[in-house]
Design a protein around this nucleic acid. Sequence first.
DNA 1: GTCTTTAATACGGGATGCGTAAAAAGTAGC
DNA 2: GCTACTTTTTACGCATCCCGTATTAAAGAC
Lengths: 405, 405
Amino acid sequence: MGVKIADPLLMREINKYHVLETIRHHGQISRVEISERTLLSGTTVSAITGALIEEGLIQATHTQVNGESQRGRPRVLLGLVPDAAYVLGIKISEAMTTVTLVDFRGESVSSVQLPVRLARQPAEVIADLIEDAMDDCVNKADIDRKRIRGIGIGVPGLVDPRSGKSYSSSVFGEREVPITSLLEGRTGLPVKLEKPANLMALAESWFGYAQSERSFAVVALDQTASLGLWVEADLHRGASTLGPTFGHIKVGGAGVVCECGQRDCLNAYVSEAVIRRKAADAMGPDFLGSAAARADLKQALADAAVTGNPAASALLAELGEKLGVGISHIINLINPEKIIIALESAQLGEAMAPALRAAAEANSFRAHFATTELIFHTLDDQLWARGAAALMLRDIYSAPWTPAY
Amino acid sequence: MGVKIADPLLMREINKYHVLETIRHHGQISRVEISERTLLSGTTVSAITGALIEEGLIQATHTQVNGESQRGRPRVLLGLVPDAAYVLGIKISEAMTTVTLVDFRGESVSSVQLPVRLARQPAEVIADLIEDAMDDCVNKADIDRKRIRGIGIGVPGLVDPRSGKSYSSSVFGEREVPITSLLEGRTGLPVKLEKPANLMALAESWFGYAQSERSFAVVALDQTASLGLWVEADLHRGASTLGPTFGHIKVGGAGVVCECGQRDCLNAYVSEAVIRRKAADAMGPDFLGSAAARADLKQALADAAVTGNPAASALLAELGEKLGVGISHIINLINPEKIIIALESAQLGEAMAPALRAAAEANSFRAHFATTELIFHTLDDQLWARGAAALMLRDIYSAPWTPAY
DNA sequence: GTCTTTAATACGGGATGCGTAAAAAGTAGC
DNA sequence: GCTACTTTTTACGCATCCCGTATTAAAGAC
């Protein structure tokens, strides 16, 4: 069915949602303009904004002289109340754990980064770590803890948002970690879990390049390649609720065996471990030991490529080519309006882009390639963490017409 | 946004839609049961069914003794009025053109099949052909022509539902044929165009194996391989509105060049032309000339395989394997609840299934493969044509909450 | 023929959105 | 500084919708 039975209360909720979304999107907006944009009558907009003010979600900020005429009663601009709610966004990865406190508008209030290398740690240890970081983050911001409404968290590896469990993640020692219930138990707050690529997708949809797209994809290249898919105005999770698999999609090639046992998986060409091995061969024995490569391998390769190292260029071009083949599958099957390739640095994008675009074009149907825009976006820890927060914010803004997930 | 602003009229329309859908789905159903299933109050259901009866869309059929008790006032069963509307569904393919007249319930009323081989015919000739077939079909049924509300049509090749044009289809001589406006001009009826796989998807969703799925895919193997994708309760058309490309997805292999110029496209292994060439090599020179092979090549191969011909078995197994690889991409990226493989015969399914399943499993991520069900469905001209009709019926039943496409 | 049971329909209450009219809140001009 | 004007915002009345309860309708049970 897709849509709930309608009754007057739902009607009001739907319109309230539209008004709140309009305000969120525009930051500061007058009642008249809300009315124009939503097509709701002025009367209704007044009633709804009145209720929202009552609830403490929005407030009158200042008045604005109207458009051109400069005459008549000035419009009162309405905006979200920043501290109507706070949400914590957490990003865990092998090299860095980031905690960000986000206000009701989605703006970052404070942030804590832990440059701790995690690999196969006991879940309890990581939970301790996160708990401390959250405390720091909240203390720094000096806000009322009661206003924190929940936690969104992104964990690398296989993640099931429905059960809230993380499976065989490289950061955890255990194979299966009920990360949400672990954190819920410690904090008493609702916790939502997603895979990083889905958080990126959420972030792009709320704050980034995809604010009004019906369908787009985010390809993230971190330890492995992963994919977040946004279809029909929502994350696509598929039948398993695990979200799309991108790292194990087949990209052709020499039949290289992936660690999953299958052949020619994308990850068999682009995962961090594989790149490390190839870099050792191609760049000489000293490269891996260099400070730059130890800090960020791909970044070091990109720097080398930019400064004219042919081996580094060739390696990154191969990376781009394999990613491009994988992306061609997305273009052929889904043909989203945009595919956002999230990378750690702009140099990396420059080094990979030509080969990636060429491979994508060479392997996808022309009409589809022409309508899907490829965008390179420097991956930003803050944005990512804000995506995690948006995961929880979504619940507060919840679209009322679809039955609960 | 995705959903319209709500007002009382929309509210009523939404609930009306739900009631009508419930009646359509159940065939015969009492007001009480509608109320239970939709969660609308009895009062509202009475009001809505009253209006629907007024409009002539539904009618009281007969009364039913209530559930167990056999006591009390019997329930009046409501059902769709079959001749509230009629729709024509047309399927054009190279070997056969089918026209089906479908009533408001989606039941086929009459059908005409033209076993005419079409290849690069002028559009006007085909339009003449179709017009005659439609006339025959309507005359056979002896209904009021004024009740025909529209035409849904499926044409092989590249098809743009938005512009209503067919591009480089094997049946048309011209590269670009504005098929909808051509037929609209001749009949004065609204015409909607889709690619066959999308019509199959629509048929499966309305009448077939996917009546309550949120997401599923239909893989059709006709002259070429094609794909219809159903995501979030609607056909997924993508940014180009052309729908997914399946025939040109890359499935690995020996680097065989496809007619599109790229390498290792699925079609380079499974299209009718390719199979014909391979069958000539593998089955000996007489095979292609045989009556069975001339009538239906793949069917002839399947028959041979079933009776123990190893060359035919091997050929079909290779077909299945390549399709399986293509399907693994669907599983990995979309992970729909079901993938329905529409084939021309059950024998063909038997001959290809093992290799197809094996290849799909070997190339897709385990958790995703486990949650996506593979179903073989014998492709049925009638069902296909009913799908074409459903394309138009959808408009009559139109879901009111989404803005017009 | 009356009683019991269940289905379907009026009726009143509550909530919503819309259009119009009135009030509010500024600017422009003198 | 006051008045006229313009535009925003709110108040009021009306129409529509859904829901819960009471009432009527239509059967079988006795």
